[in-house]
């Protein structure tokens, strides 16, 4: 019961000695100061706190720390160092898909998970892929378009 929780966070192995029942969201924001992980609801309904956990999208507010033991967590702070991020960055910018920005870190990681699974998604598949990430500003069209552009312009990255 005394071993720390060990996991890979944005490419680095870290040891977390706190409670296994703590929320990943709170630990990322408070202990690791990764404030790109946003809190919108604390109940898995908005996706603003999305991270990539073991290669899949997860709401970090719905994950207890014990679950990440031995796992891999990527937040926007880690993901933004990648070439894939750059492709998404340019695509999002080209259609002004970022408005208030609060959903965006989660939306970007959702975009990554869509494209990692399917480098050539249809519009409908993109909409399913971001369906857990609420955006109140854009009406979603620009974001859907941006992901499509990234898939095309970032050919070979995914």
């Amino acid at each position: 019961m005394d071993d720390a929780i060990v996991f890979t966070l944005n490419g680095k192995q870290v040891r977390y000695a706190g409670s296994a029942t703590a929320r990943l969201l709170d630990v990322l924001r408070e202990d690791y100061r990764l404030t790109g992980v946003k809190c919108g609801c604390r109940e898995g309904e908005c996706g603003a706190c999305s991270v990539i956990l073991d290669g899949r999208l997860a709401n970090s507010c719905m994950v207890a720390m014990g679950r990440v033991d031995g796992g891999t967590v990527t937040t926007i702070e880690g993901y933004r160092e990648t070439a894939r991020f750059k492709a998404l960055d340019e695509a999002y910018a080209s259609v002004a898909a970022v408005q208030c920005g609060y959903c965006i870190p989660g939306m970007v990681l959702a975009s990554e998970c869509i494209l990692a699974k399917n480098p050539h998604p249809s519009e409908a598949e993109i909409r399913v892929g971001i369906s857990g990430n609420l955006c109140r500003c854009t009406g979603y069209n620009a974001i859907v378009k941006a992901i499509g552009i990234a898939a095309k312009e970032g050919e070979g990255l995914w």
């Binding site: 926007i76 965006i104 870190p105």
Partner: peptide, 8 residues
């Protein structure tokens, strides 16, 4: 405001 919002 794109860049700072995009990269968190």
């Amino acid at each position: 405001d794109h860049a700072a919002k995009m990269d968190g």
